[in-house]
Design a protein around this nucleic acid. Structure first.
Lengths: 202, 202
DNA sequence: TTGACAAGTGGAATATTCTCCGTTTATTAT
DNA sequence: ATAATAAACGGAGAATATTCCACTTGTCAA
């Protein structure tokens, strides 16, 4: 279906759309050949045959570009979560939390390259904190709700926001791939450790 | 080469020492005037009146430079820890852990600028993980020992290495200053949250 | 003292990021 | 159609990061 609803906002110009597609294609191509981090914005602009200015007009940095590239996947990921939550709405919150973590880790494993790209330059450009991104914000929201539920169930008063922040940090590239690559932990082991720590066995 | 056994590393040349001092002075001066992150290596080289090559020969990046600048402070910090641990060697490990965290947070607050600099570019240059630095490695070691002790005391079998990794991540700039600046938590509150989570009340 | 040579130096060269701005072009109202 | 206009373009170029290497200079041993 096309979004031909009469938006007051002038829709994207045709040539602009073409260029964007060229940029995305170029990025995909280059990302297949080299590590995301190795590919420079210049290379992408070059490959796409647009000037660097054009590229930057559209994407403030590589991170945004990557986000655009996996946007669809992210949407699918959240669909999966929604389905999972519906199917398990009667399970205890701790079980649901674990399920979500598991889904995210699977997602992270599948799309590690691009996901890494998304989180990357967010440390250079905006002030800081890779915790700030649509993807992470939405997850944060889910996690906070689950932690809140757990607090009710278990009669605890843990700080849901703080714990969600930390949990997300543990799932972000820096920490996660350190555990994978340096500590040699498998995704499953990481999941277990996180559950042990965050799903109060307290 | 001479067949003799003198493996002594030729000590730093006099002129090199002078240059290094000039670089450090220049860095201090610039860091006082601007945020650490704003100051470029070039500026430092300029201010110190050495070529960029000379600067890079000594410090692979700003991070290393910062580390050199706070090296003394870091040493003092570890002295404090040692003293603290001696004075409290009979306290339960959980108490000692909290003490160390408190000391580190105080340290972090006092030297936030430079410490931030230390952790900064380490994300760009080497593969990744700001967990890797002499400062953090040494802390990691301490933490692991305390967690191990706690496991014995409390008859648990938590993963000390993993928990130490995560705890350090929570104390690193990204996470810590996010909590401070965005969540508006005080150092004390952060400390409490970390203790709640990591010092098993389980 | 001296000379061999490792250590150290400067800065040109290359690569990247990112901005600025004059020019081009698609769209839309007429 | 056509002109007005906002959007989009592209590339020059400023600021950085980082490397390379031909040249200098302390140091040490004889």
């Amino acid at each position: 279906m096309n979004g031909s609803e009469t938006t007051q906002i002038r829709s994207e110009r045709r040539d602009a759309a073409e260029n964007r597609q060229r940029i995305l294609n170029a990025a995909i191509k280059l990302f297949e050949q080299n590590d995301v981090e190795q590919v420079s914005m210049n290379q992408i602009a070059n490959e796409a045959q647009v000037g660097p200015g054009t590229l930057y007009r559209r994407y403030k940095n590589k991170s945004e570009l990557c986000l655009d590239l996996i946007k669809d996947n992210v949407d699918l990921f959240f669909d999966d979560i929604e389905i999972y939550l519906k199917e398990n709405c009667s399970s205890p919150p701790s079980k649901r939390l674990k399920g979500i973590l598991s889904l995210f880790i699977r997602f992270r494993e599948k799309k590690s390259q691009l996901l890494t790209g998304v989180e990357d330059s967010s440390s250079t450009n905006p002030p800081r904190s890779r915790i700030q991104s649509p993807l992470f914000n939405e997850l944060h929201h889910l996690l906070v709700n689950l932690f809140d539920e757990m607090n009710v169930t278990k009669q605890t008063r843990l700080n849901s926001v703080f714990n969600a922040d930390l949990l997300l940090t543990a799932l972000s590239r820096d920490f996660y791939s350190f555990q994978r690559d340096v500590r040699n932990y498998s995704p499953e082991m990481i999941l277990e450790e996180l559950c042990t720590l965050f799903i109060s066995l307290k």
